[in-house]
Each structure stands twice: as structure tokens, then as C-alpha cells.
Design a protein around this nucleic acid. Structure first.
Lengths: 136, 136
DNA sequence: TCCTACGATAGACAGAGTTCAAGTCAAGAA
DNA sequence: TTCTTGACTTGAACTCTGTCTATCGTAGGA
């Protein structure tokens, strides 16, 4: 994660304690926190951090391509720090747990030209749904 | 669509004018309305219909499997009456337009057992993103 | 160390959706 | 047809997620 902080500094990011804490909270594999969860965890280390700052920082990380925004249900978006390795998601319909998965195949190639309706298709997102071992 | 009303009655649905209007508004292919849009269109025919009733009715149609809930961005969910023919979605990143598409291939088969983490995977949702001809 | 532009903060605001108590009515029974 | 009843509808208040703005604070260069 210090890699991330380095990269951010390299892009001219001003490194404040708030931004550092948010970046550190997002560290790790298979982490898919909502903005509120990020705020709660950040507040453990930095009690005065505000919601607006967390939203701002997450938004910046997303537009820098360092974090992915995932909205699997209609509820809160989740933030996925695993943005540099292409992957899809497996979601538990009961508890909402998310795992990163790497299916074979290339769904982009599976969409024939006559099914593109003139769109310039640039990305594809695959969400598998099921029940996780804990909920089963 | 009268088929739908018949099916609903067969499942013990009490057929009120509000439910009838909501079901009728959702009629047709390539219709992907938000709850608010459904409410607006329903209110043309039944001005006193309330938002709560629209939400209730949509929720029931979804849990009966007659309508699909699609949340393509973090914004409002959209409701897709084309629930009986399996399909995926193509979304314009600019204006949010949604088209139903039918790609080749079977993404469920593309997820190997070791990538399922013990989940019982039952469905898969594929969302293609791009720019529509109008926005290009 | 000082300056200042960029970032953080609190709180108001907005959109989407849910809840609840009270009133209404569809449809089966008589 | 009329009655009865529990399912349905209503509207308002409420929750949750996210955005905006004015003001304050501070990271980092000079």
C-alpha cells in the first residue's frame, strides 16, 4: 500500500493524514467496503475525519484508477482496491459478501456486432450471484 | 400483458386498479423505467396513486419473477419487464440508455469450480458499457 | 519560518427508497 | 345483493446514501 501512497504522491497528490488513513483502510485483497464502512474504520484512527472527506478521497482514488467502484445492489456503492488486475465479482444474495473472481472467456468478444446497436462498447462487468458457504 | 394480469390473479394477487396500471405501464420490450418514471406514467391514468404503492407493486412483481430489477449505476434502480427471456444489458455511460442484448457464450460455465469459493452460483448478470450512437 | 493554495470540516441539502398508522375496498360468503 | 374482512393504498415522516458550500486549517514550497 505504500506503493499506492508513492504513486499518489508522484501524481501530485497532497498527502494529508486523512488521505493516508483512507488509503490504508482500503489496503488488502477482497476488501469491498462501503463509503460508510471506510469512514467508520478511518475514524478509529482519526476520529475527526468527516464523511465529506471520505467521499472526496474515494472519488479521487476512483478517478485516478486506483480503486474501482462496484454497485452490486441498489444500495451503497462499494470500493474495490484491486483495480490493477482485471476481475469480476461473485456476490452472496443473502449477506452481500463479495469475492473477486477470474472467469475464463472474454464476454466482450461474445457480443456480436448486430447486438451492439451502434454503441462503442468499451467494457464489460460480470456479476455472479449465489449463496456463500456461510449462508448456505 | 393481460397474460401477466392473468398469471398474477392465478397466484392469488388481489387485482386493484393501482396494480393493474403499474403492470400496464411496464408493458413492452426495451422498457427500463425507474420507479419514479413508473409512478409518473401511472399517475397519468390514476392521478391519486401513491409512490409507496408503486414501490410495493414493483417489489412484488420482482419477487414473483415477473420483472427484473436492474441497477446499472449507483442511481435509481430500473425495472425490466422482459424477465422471461434471458438477456443482458448494454448501457450508455453518458446518457444511461439501456438496451437488452443477447450475447453468445455462457458466462456461468466460464467460472471454474476453484473460483467459486464454495458458493452455490445460480445466476450471472453481464453489463456492457459504452457510448450510444446518439451520444457519440 | 512564513504564505497560500489546496484540502478538510460541519452541516444543510437532495434523491431514492422504506415504514407506519389509518383509511379503503376487492372478492368471497351468506 | 349486501356484508365482512383482511389485504391494499395513502401520505407523511423517516432512513440511507451521497453532494454541495462556506469557512477553517495545513502541507509543503520559498
Amino acid at each position: 500500500m505504500s506503493d499506492l501512497l508513492e504513486r499518489l504522491r508522484g501524481r501530485g497528490w497532497r498527502l494529508t493524514s486523512q488521505r493516508r488513513v483512507v488509503a490504508e483502510v482500503l489496503d488488502g485483497d477482497h476488501v469491498h467496503l462501503t463509503a460508510d464502512e471506510v469512514h467508520a474504520r478511518a475514524a478509529v484512527r482519526l476520529p475527526e475525519i468527516s464523511r465529506a472527506t471520505v467521499y472526496n478521497t474515494l472519488g479521487e482514488l476512483v478517478s485516478l484508477g486506483e480503486v474501482l467502484e462496484v454497485s452490486t445492489d441498489g444500495r451503497a456503492k462499494r470500493y474495490d482496491p484491486n483495480a490493477h488486475r482485471p476481475h469480476h465479482h461473485l456476490v452472496c444474495s443473502r449477506c452481500g459478501t463479495i469475492r473477486d473472481v477470474h472467469p475464463a472467456g472474454n464476454p466482450l468478444a461474445d457480443l456480436p456486432a448486430e447486438e451492439r446497436f451502434g454503441f462503442t462498447v468499451s467494457e464489460v462487468e460480470v456479476t455472479y450471484r449465489g449463496v456463500c458457504p456461510t449462508c448456505a
